[in-house]
Amino acid sequence: MFRTRLRLLFLLSAVGTAVFLGIHMAVQHLNNVLATGELDPTSWASTIGRATQSGWVVIYILLLVFALYHALYGLRGIILELTTSEKALRAVNWLFIVGGVIVFIWASYVPLALMSSR
């Protein structure tokens, strides 16, 4: 049951990632087609402009949560297809849990710190 729930979370995180990454991609890579008025979405002014808006920070942190879970669970599935070793299963589980938490803390701290410093 626990594994089924983790799998369901994987599917839900896929939908969440598609939605938030879709927003990110539309702003960054469809600026001309959608006429967003952004000449260069990667410029410092544009980047910091978004980083200081709480709405964008929320979108980026939600994207981070969904994408991180989806990516790590997906990669775990691929690795565990190639081996049946219990040791490998435990090692991969702990590596991904600890690594995922560290990446989440660091990658969500940066936008929060940028927002509060402005």
Binding site: T47, A71, G74, V103, W106, A107, V110, L114
Partner: peptide, 26 residues
Amino acid sequence: GLGILLFGIFHLIETTFFRRQGESVW
């Protein structure tokens, strides 16, 4: 999926380590 994951790792490094160092580094 693996390609996006690889890009995501580099993209996170770019938007955290490099962006934190200010406008000139960015």
